Amino acid sequence: MTEFARVAVVGGGPAGLQAALTLGRMHVDTVVFDDGRPRNGTSPRMHNVLGWDGTEPARLRTAARDELRKYPWVRVVDHTVRAARRSADIELDTSGGPWRAENLLIATGVEDALLPIPGVSDLWGDLVLPCPYCHGHEHAKGPIAVISSGAHADHVGGLLRGLTDEVPHFEPEEVASVTRAGDRALITRHDGRTTEVAAVFIPPNPTPRSRIATDLGVRVEADGIVVDALGRTDQLGIWAAGDVARRLDPHVPAAVVTAMAAGLTAAADIAAAGAPPPRGSAREG
């Protein structure tokens, strides 16, 4: 049997959960699909989140789910959305069965295409990191290395030099491996030289985790789903928020707080779009 919700939120991370809270507080019938694969799942701590600085990321998600239980209009289900199509409503093929929704918020997050350097994926989220705002302070004693090139290396290196005087830079093709050396990282170059550092920053190279945006004909560019300031896509009734959405300005950090803000903004627009017309208006008749 096909289940129905006015709004389907695909993604149970900060953007999706914040959107669900906003919709729940506006008494909008909402379902959240969570496949249990958070982007920051390998990070032992999240930082630069007011009230949660230094907390395990899973604690924020658990607290959010607990809060959502107060709102009977919101359901959170641990199902993966495998495909989507458009008919009169938006139809979702999920691991828990078929669903229909009038509106859809895509908050599926991204997969990080990490540099193909041995050891990088093993240390990702711990000693190999993407965001100076989220993790730079903890390693300010330095040195903090940057393995990157071009504009990304210049931008991240400039931010890190505000924290430490020692910011060695490596082109990706120079590096043979990155390994753990106690509580630090050891960078080994192809010529055998090594450098021990407090942490390493690399470009995350994110790509959308789910294909449902393309299933529905939503415009997707290399840097994410194209949205406006309210999270609207180019398809009526479909919004996107969080890391999967293209940032209107690339200098806006991809972070827990900005994902939550985007989720709130999109959810508020969804709620407003479905609000009853003013009494006595032409729409009401």
Rank of each mutant, 00 (worst) to 15 (best):
Y71I: 11
D93Y: 13
I187M: 03
V81R: 02
R247P: 01
M46A: 02
V252M: 12
L104V: 08
L248W: 01
A261Q: 07
G224H: 05
H135T: 08
P253I: 02
V110H: 05
W239F: 10
S281N: 01
D269W: 10
G51E: 04
Q235W: 07
P44R: 15
D66V: 09
P276S: 00
M26P: 05
A153K: 02
P250T: 12
I225C: 11
D112F: 11
V197G: 00
R193Y: 09
D53R: 08
G119H: 03
D154G: 03
D122N: 10
L92S: 10
A267P: 11
A151K: 15
V76S: 03
H190P: 03
G157R: 01
W52L: 02
D126T: 08
E91A: 12
I202F: 11
V32M: 05
T80S: 13
H251I: 14
G109E: 06
R69W: 11
P278Y: 07
L50D: 11
T94M: 00
V10N: 06
A275K: 07
L236C: 04
F201T: 05
V49I: 13
S149K: 13
E91H: 09
P278M: 14
D78G: 13
L115R: 00
G274W: 08
P14N: 15
H27M: 11
G263T: 09
G11E: 04
R85F: 03
A199E: 03
R69L: 12
H135Y: 00
E166A: 05
G150N: 06
L186Y: 06
